[in-house]
Amino acid sequence: MKILLVGEYSRLHNSLKEGLQKLGHEVTIIATGDYFKNFPADIKLSRKYDTGFLKKIKVLFFILFRIDITQQAITNQFFKHKNNLIGYDAVQLINERPFNIMGKNAYLIIDFLKKNNKTVHLLACGTDYISVKFALDKKYRYSILTPYFNGKINKSAYRNILNYTSEKSFQHHQEVFKKIDSVTASDIDYVLPYQNHSKFLGLIPNPINTEKLKFIPFTKLEKIIIFHGINRNNYYKKGNDIFEKALQKIKEKYSNKVEILSVSNLPYSEYIEKYNQAHVLLDQIYAYDQGYNALEAMAKGKVVFTGAEKEFLKYYNLQENEVCINALPDINYLIEKLSWLIENPSEIKKIGENARKFIEEHHDYKKIASKYIDIWMTN
Rank of each mutant, 00 (worst) to 15 (best):
L64N: 03
N344D: 09
F243D: 05
G202M: 09
W340E: 13
K37Q: 06
L122A: 02
K56L: 13
F53I: 15
F149V: 01
D330W: 01
Q248F: 13
K238Q: 13
H172G: 02
D330M: 03
R232D: 12
I373M: 02
I74V: 07
K257A: 12
K214I: 13
N240Q: 09
A327I: 04
I86L: 11
D374P: 08
H279E: 09
I86D: 06
K199Q: 14
E96S: 09
I331C: 05
E252W: 00
N344H: 15
I43M: 07
E270H: 12
N206S: 08
V6N: 08
A369M: 10
V323R: 01
L123C: 14
C324D: 08
I74F: 04
G239N: 02
F200V: 06
H173K: 13
F149P: 02
V263L: 01
T119C: 10
Y268R: 09
D68P: 02
Y372V: 04
L108C: 03
Q71W: 13
F227D: 03
K350T: 10
L45R: 00
H81I: 00
I226S: 02
N160P: 12
A41N: 00
V258A: 07
K2G: 04
K257T: 06
P329D: 08
I109R: 01
N38K: 13
N116A: 09
M102R: 08
K48C: 15
F149Y: 09
G239C: 12
Y271I: 01
N234V: 05
K251L: 14
L113V: 00
Q174W: 05
I375M: 06
D50T: 15
L295K: 01
E336I: 09
E311F: 08
Y194T: 03
N332F: 09
T70G: 05
S46F: 05
F243V: 04
N150H: 07
F61K: 07
V183H: 06
S169Q: 12
E252M: 11
A73F: 13
Y236D: 02
I130G: 02
K249Q: 15
P267V: 11
H197D: 15
K302N: 11
G87Y: 12
K212Q: 14
G7K: 00
I63A: 13
R11L: 11
Y271E: 06
I359P: 09
S15P: 00
F99P: 04
D68M: 03
P345T: 08
F215G: 01
V132H: 10
Q290I: 01
L93G: 02
A31I: 01
L203D: 05
D364C: 07
I57T: 14
N231G: 11
F312I: 00
Y190E: 05
Y107H: 07
Q290C: 12
A31F: 03
S182M: 05
I144L: 11
F227I: 05
